[in-house]
């Protein structure tokens, strides 16, 4: 298999007819457990369901060991493609590239190791046939350490609060969705991890299915500090892409008004101290704080103005609506 030249995919939907019922897109990084076993288990399940399928292994610039494992599967199994990224790009980019190459009507995504028993996946197929556009896995019976579980629960709770979307496990790598839907979602940068939230926001029908985690998998110990920081940043992203993306001035402007207002109150109080109480204020740091707040408030509002300029002049890229169908 030749290495593929990778570009960040555009948001247009993938072209071509549905050659298969299901495209299984597997994200492959150094955590890959056993590609051959994964293929065997999922292929068996899909064959039992009576669905035609293809496999796409998205090799995210892994080392030679993993590369050979995946290519060994490619050599023996049919309908398997390996797409190798020239270097590590992260899950978001790798998966989006995979979706543009997929030819199935449905896309099933899997992580590097099977977190759930394959039989759990058939529940997701049952669910999507009820008329949903995307079915997200919800891992229950977690086998992580209790600190990790607590952190994950808190994170998912915050995601629900911030996004106002009632999903319990957006990060679950196990997802099943219609291929036609994914091309219409504004996926860019790192926001693939919020794919279900993006789908809900664009008006797609999203459901989640509880899937039991495999008992025998051996999770790594406790999350490092990095994952905490990353998840905090994720939440900020989620907030801004949802509510304020179309109206930056509403955010920067209200922030600016609050800062300006508090600075104004402080300086007004100092005026009172100076002129009514006759005390000198020129040595008080509070005066600097008050002035600084006013100045920063004005600057915040002006950043909002630039944000609005960016949006209007680049508004061709905004997806401000999603058309479901047009009757002619």
């Amino acid at each position: 298999m030749q290495p593929q030249i990778v570009e960040v995919p555009k948001t247009e939907g993938p072209k071509g007819v549905d050659s298969f019922d299901v495209s299984v897109v597997v994200y492959v990084d150094s955590n890959l457990e056993n590609a051959a076993q994964m293929y065997a288990q999922v292929a068996e399940l899909l064959a039992k369901e009576g669905r035609t399928f293809e496999f796409l292994f998205m090799d995210d610039g892994t080392g030679p060991g993993v590369k050979f494992t995946v290519e060994a599967v490619h050599a023996v199994a049919k309908n398997v493609r390996v797409i190798r990224m020239p270097r590590f790009y992260g899950m978001s980019v790798a998966m989006m590239v995979g979706f543009t190459h997929a030819k199935g009507r449905l896309i099933l995504t899997l992580g590097s190791f099977m977190q759930v028993h394959p039989s759990e996946i058939s529940k997701m197929f049952t669910k999507i046939e009820e008329g949903f556009d995307l079915v997200n896995g919800w891992r229950v019976g977690r086998v992580d350490s209790s600190l990790n579980q607590l952190q994950t629960a808190a994170y998912n709770w915050l995601v629900r609060k911030v996004s106002q979307v009632d999903l319990h496990d957006t990060n679950c790598t196990l997802k099943l969705f219609k291929r036609s839907a994914v091309g219409e979602l504004p996926v860019y940068g790192d926001n693939y991890r919020f794919l279900p939230v993006l789908a809900v926001r664009q008006g797609f029908r999203v459901a989640e299915v509880p899937v039991r985690q495999r008992r025998e998998i051996n999770q790594h110990g406790v999350y490092g500090a990095g994952i905490y920081l990353r998840r905090m940043l994720d939440l900020v992203t989620l907030m801004f892409t949802g509510r304020f993306v179309e109206r930056p001035l509403r955010f920067f402007g209200s922030l600016g008004v609050m800062l300006l207002g508090s600075g104004f109150v402080i300086n007004f109080y100092l005026m009172y101290v100076k002129y009514m109480q006759g005390q000198p204020i020129s040595q008080r740091p509070l005066l600097i704080l008050g002035t600084l707040l006013m100045v920063v408030g004005v600057q915040s509002a002006s950043i909002g103005l630039i944000g609005e300029l960016i949006l209007f002049t680049h508004s061709k890229d905004i997806q401000s609506y999603q058309i479901e169908k047009i009757l002619e």
């Binding site: 600084l292 100045v295 002006s302 103005l305 209007f312 002049t313 680049h314």
Partner: peptide, 25 residues
Amino acid sequence: MVLGTAFHFILSGILAEYVVSTGET
């Protein structure tokens, strides 16, 4: 501080020029 804000507006203006000149609409 107040002069700094004036400076900030000049820089913002330059940024805005970039934005408008690269935009489509």
